Amino acid sequence: MADTRWLTESELDAWMAYLKATHLLERRIEEQLKTDSGLTHAHYEILAKLSIAPERQLRMSDLARKLVVSKSGLTYQIGQLEKRGLVERTTCPSDERGVLAVLTDEGMRCLEKTAPGHVAVVRAFLIDQLTPEELRAMTRIMSKAAAAMIQDGRRPPGGPTSPKGPA
């Protein structure tokens, strides 16, 4: 524990503000999606990614990468969306081992119905709260954090056995 760089008061304030805001925003998004369409945020993201893909379809492995989720987690979510008729799975024509997730017409209609409310929540509670300069800074900050995590892979700093602090 002697090697641990504990958060300073200002760093801890920033961390706690980030956690509070992201949890509250996620809760608002989940409420809106459930009310408007019965979707979860994860389901909405899947539909949104498929809607902008060529022919509204992606290989499952590519979709998992774009969503930053495990393949098994995505398989479960796709199964739920299939039961609702919003997505279907099909074999990849160029590779029999590959599976495509395809947005159905019903899935597109559901997304089109739900998207305005989703955008309204994101805009009201995040985007419209920031100045253009703050929005650019947020983009730089979050992109920098994401790049560091992607570059580092899944190993936490200090190794998997390092003691955890109170943050």
Rank of each mutant, 00 (worst) to 15 (best):
R27T: 11
T139I: 10
A167V: 01
K20G: 08
L39Q: 08
L74M: 07
Q129W: 10
T104D: 05
L126K: 09
L63P: 10
E26L: 07
R5P: 05
Q57Y: 01
L135T: 07
V87T: 06
Q77R: 15
T104H: 08
I46L: 05
P132I: 00
T114I: 01
S10G: 07
G107I: 04
L135S: 14
T114R: 05
T104K: 05
Y18R: 10
P54A: 00
Q77M: 10
C92N: 15
H41K: 12
K83H: 14
E88M: 15
H23T: 07
A21I: 02
V121L: 11
L100E: 12
D95S: 13
S70N: 00
C92F: 09
L19R: 12
L63R: 09
T8C: 05
Q129N: 13
L111H: 14
T161P: 04
L74R: 04
E96Y: 05
G159N: 12
T90E: 15
L33D: 15
G165S: 05
P160K: 12
T91Y: 03
I78L: 15
G73A: 02
D13V: 06
H43Q: 12
R136L: 10
H23S: 02
E30V: 06
A167C: 03
V87N: 04
P163M: 04
L67I: 01
A48D: 13
D105H: 01
I52W: 07
G85S: 04
I78E: 03
I78D: 01
E133V: 13
I46F: 03
L111V: 01
S94L: 04
A48F: 06
